[in-house]
Design a protein around this nucleic acid. Structure first.
Lengths: 198, 198
DNA sequence: TACATATTAGTACCTGGTTCTAATTGATAA
DNA sequence: TTATCAATTAGAACCAGGTACTAATATGTA
């Protein structure tokens, strides 16, 4: 096996398992540990500990920005049991990589989260929804969802919430949500109030 | 400062910055490095390198499972323009941390992705949907979504797809989707075919 | 045969620890 | 006041997984 081939293999092995030590690499590639290290130098691959550190730092950055995901979108205005507005910017992680169009469940998720957040009860869960994706949403666009409570049954009843999502002036999504309140064991989905918003 | 107070501080510092070395901790807490290490022992906090390794492994697991996110759920059976089945296990990242209930847009996303994948066209986009969350889904549960094409209009028309999602024998979600085919510039949302499935 | 490149060997040193033994400090009860 | 005990500090040996450097040995190739 030539040097180039070996270095390609080395690259592939580390790509496939970044947690491999030089010692393990000697076993797989049947060359001395010095050769492994020279190869890493030439390929600019850092040592195991440095690789792990970089991955850890990367994931730490992600973890720190994750809480914003608990509710999809930032709620910028909220009048409990009345209306609310949330803003959600379509980023890389929200689109299909092939065409840059937002995945539906994020657009849905923004509206759903807002519909649930607006209800002034300890627990509020979406029971059903009637939705329309009016036009596709693309990478970089800012979705502004506006929710209006249409009817409010008494405690432990259901509420109806309409959500319209716009990009600029254009309507991109509309949904009619039926949300149950304080109904813990039945007709439920997964949304709750206040405590989960940061 | 008492031992307990110091250990609480130590915990807080490492929580705030997992990348801190024992040496740095001696500077912040004004005790010897041995005390720091005894404290870590008692609190069960691993050494810096181990902490980084765990974070790296954690993020690596996430990265590896990300491509499966392009379509939510694994499609295990697919008869184009007829029916399909997808399996989706509810993990940590899919639930509200407070109560372990799945966020609605994941359950919706599984059904939506399946409804779109089933359509045998270059491009298929959800136009509208009528959905019901029949019962909440919890952490660890395996959702099995079954989709059936109900009607198929000609090319560039719309198709109707019904999706039922079960956990075991129990129905947890149902949805009626209207999916447009090959309609690129209008009535769209964000779903496409084949190329995005891994 | 001479020269260059590739590979291997070996040593000293580094960080950020663990593990262990032992000494010192400080408070507390008899 | 003194014995006692937990808490703290010190120090040395050792470890993994390397880096940095020097030197020797293959292996081709002109």
């Amino acid at each position: 096996m030539s040097k180039k081939e070996r270095q390609q293999q080395l690259l592939a092995i580390i790509e496939g398992n970044p947690f491999v030590t030089d010692r393990e690499l000697t076993r797989q590639l049947k060359v001395s540990i010095q050769t492994i290290r020279l190869d890493r130098m030439e390929l600019g691959i850092p040592e195991l500990r440095e690789r792990m550190k970089q991955m850890a730092e990367h994931s730490y950055d992600q973890v720190r920005s994750l809480p914003a995901d608990e509710v999809v979108g930032d709620i910028v205005d909220l009048q409990l049991d009345r209306s609310g507005i949330s803003i959600f910017e379509i980023r890389d992680e929200h689109v299909f990589s092939r065409n840059g169009i937002a995945r539906g469940h994020y657009v849905f998720g923004q509206a759903n989260s807002l519909a649930v957040a607006i209800i002034n009860d300890e627990i509020a869960l979406t029971a059903s929804a009637d939705i329309r994706f009016v036009r596709m949403v693309r990478l970089g666009e800012k979705c502004i969802a506006k929710a209006q409570v249409r009817s409010l049954a008494g405690r432990n009843g259901k509420a109806e919430v309409d959500v319209f999502t716009y990009v600029g002036e254009e309507l991109v999504f509309q949904g009619h949500f039926i949300v149950y309140r304080s109904a813990i064991e039945e007709y439920s989905e997964g949304g709750n109030r206040s405590a989960d918003r940061h």
